[in-house]
């Protein structure tokens, strides 16, 4: 009986605490939601051990309600997740937040929050967000998606005021490519030991945003 009381109390406490959306996160969301549209030039570098790709250039344009569009005259590879600058995917469905305390992230003392969606429609199971309370901006975001693995975004800003980052570093898991022997070219080395290992590797994409024009 004593234990039942404790368990019920525990659930009641965390449920009432978790249902509320953190005020700092609400401030960030408010700032991001105020963006009507933006455009920027993008400079992208891919850092994946088995891919050699030169720096790519393109343009990104965002319109509220329509999402972001990236265009380039080059061939570009974009991670499916991690480039959601306005966090629309995170805030799309109802969620609850759980405070995880303070943590020094990229030299900034951040408030760490878990975002747990309450709708089954959400395509992620949990997100951890590191907020700079002073500037009401996101410094780090880690999202565990239901289908596309875990990805981490690190965001840097060009000045103290802007809400959109000027540099995004996206870290994600990527499976190594397996090529049939007939497609292997001259002196292509086949590392049998490496092939036996799990093919998942960490990939990194650096995206710089330049000439950004934000329409509030």
């Amino acid at each position: 009986m004593k234990y039942s009381f404790l368990i019920i109390s525990w659930f009641t406490f965390f449920n009432s605490y978790g249902q509320q959306i953190d005020q700092d996160l609400a401030n960030v969301r408010g700032r991001l939601d105020s963006i009507e549209s933006f455009t920027a030039d993008i400079v992208m570098d891919v850092d994946i051990s088995f891919i050699n790709m030169p720096t790519k250039h393109g343009k990104v344009s965002y319109q509220r309600g329509k999402g972001s569009k990236i265009s380039s005259k080059d061939f570009i590879m974009l991670p499916k997740r991690g480039l959601d600058l306005t966090m629309e995917d995170i805030f799309k469905y109802p969620f609850i937040t759980v405070q995880r305390g303070l943590e020094n992230t990229e030299g900034v003392l951040c408030k760490v929050l878990n975002i747990i969606p309450t709708s089954e429609k959400a395509d992620f199971s949990i997100a951890t967000i590191h907020l700079d309370q002073n500037t009401s901006r996101i410094i780090k975001l880690q999202v565990s998606t239901k289908k596309e693995g875990v990805y981490t975004s690190l965001l840097s800003y060009s000045n103290a005021k802007t809400i959109l980052p000027s540099l995004i570093e996206v870290l994600f898991e990527v499976s190594n490519i397996k090529i049939p022997l007939q497609f292997l070219g001259k002196e292509t080395e086949v590392d049998k030991e490496a092939m036996k290992e799990d093919g998942a590797k960490t990939g990194r994409i650096l995206l710089r945003l330049e000439q950004m024009v934000i329409v509030p």
Binding site: G58, I70, S71, S72, K73, D74, F75, I76, M77, L78, P79, K80, E148, G149, F172, E173, V174, S175, N176, I177, K178, I179, P180, F183, G199, G203
Partner: peptide
């Protein structure tokens, strides 16, 4: 066929813009 093969494992993680 070759492009599909080369990019098969990457399609889960990436979106591709442009024609190879």
């Amino acid at each position: 066929e070759i492009i599909d093969l080369l990019l098969a494992n990457l399609k889960d993680t990436f979106e591709f813009k442009g024609d190879l």
